Computed example of a mutant assay.
Amino acid sequence: MAVGIGKGQVTYLDAATARRLDKDGKKRFAVVGQPGLALLNGYRPGPWAQHLKADQIDTAIDARDAGRWEGSFDAAAITGSLKANGYVPADEDGRQTWKPAHGKGVALQVSEDTILYSTPGTSRMSAVHPENGSSLADVEEYRRAAGCLGDVYRADFNPFTPAKPVRLSALGQRADSAGRNTEVLCAVTKDEATARRLAARLRSVVRDKAPRYDGTEVSVEKGEQPLVRAAVPDTAAQRPGRMLVLDFDLWMAVVKL
């Protein structure tokens, strides 16, 4: 994940896969098929007008302050719209960066295949161009969590809390087909005692909330930073992403540990 280290939430999305899974038009993947930040989800179009839409994005990484979208973009039309909306180009670390002339608003770097942005209040675009050793991929907890999630088309990482018993938790979405989705909850813990305690709590939630989480498998992977993994199968009638917007019991078991 080529974004800078931050304490907030981070979302990775393989939007192209989500669209492929949702090709029947039933919109089962509407919740999980959009980038994690609200820049493209507002009622009013952004300074790019109608020249930038979510269905142009193939992959997205959205952090608290900045993000990276890869896909197919009309760079000339987007930058033309930015200019018409009061944006001006400036050089930042050798890269053309579009910023509002009044200084308030999202800053963007635009090309035909990549859009990088920083949100209002972020002074520079350095978060999307991290130095060696300072990206999320360089943090052991993020590598552990990503490995635990496996081959997912979406991953939502909670804030990084290295001083707490659960240092990092993440929820991933996996789908072999449009009708079969599995949500994978992973937690990186400080020690094996914490991992065993969390696993027991998750199993208790599955029992107490039956049949909501029927079929859930909870496991523990030992190591220097033990992992707890809960794989929660969805039924064909359930929309993927229910643990993001509706069923919070397992999430809360992690947060309240």
Rank of each mutant, 00 (worst) to 15 (best):
G8Q: 09
T11C: 02
T11M: 06
A16G: 01
D22I: 12
K23W: 05
K23C: 00
G33W: 11
L37S: 14
N41S: 11
N41I: 00
G42Q: 13
Y43K: 14
G46Q: 09
A49P: 00
A54T: 13
R64L: 05
A66C: 12
W69E: 00
G71Q: 03
A76E: 07
A84G: 12
A84V: 01
G86Y: 06
G86V: 06
P89R: 09
A90V: 14
D93T: 10
Q96A: 14
P100V: 11
A107G: 03
D113H: 15
L116Y: 15
G121N: 10
A127L: 14
H129E: 07
N132E: 15
D138N: 15
A145H: 09
G147Q: 11
V152Y: 04
Y153E: 10
F157Y: 15
F160D: 06
P165N: 10
L168D: 09
R174A: 14
A175C: 04
R180P: 02
T182M: 04
T182K: 11
T189I: 02
K190P: 04
T194E: 01
A195H: 01
L198M: 09
R207M: 01
R207A: 03
A210E: 06
Y213F: 14
Y213D: 01
G215D: 03
E217M: 04
K222R: 09
K222N: 05
G223M: 03
E224F: 05
A231V: 13
A237H: 12
A237R: 14
A237L: 05
Q238A: 08
P240F: 13
R242T: 12
L244I: 03
L246K: 15
D247G: 01
L250A: 05
V255P: 06
K256Y: 07
L257Q: 10
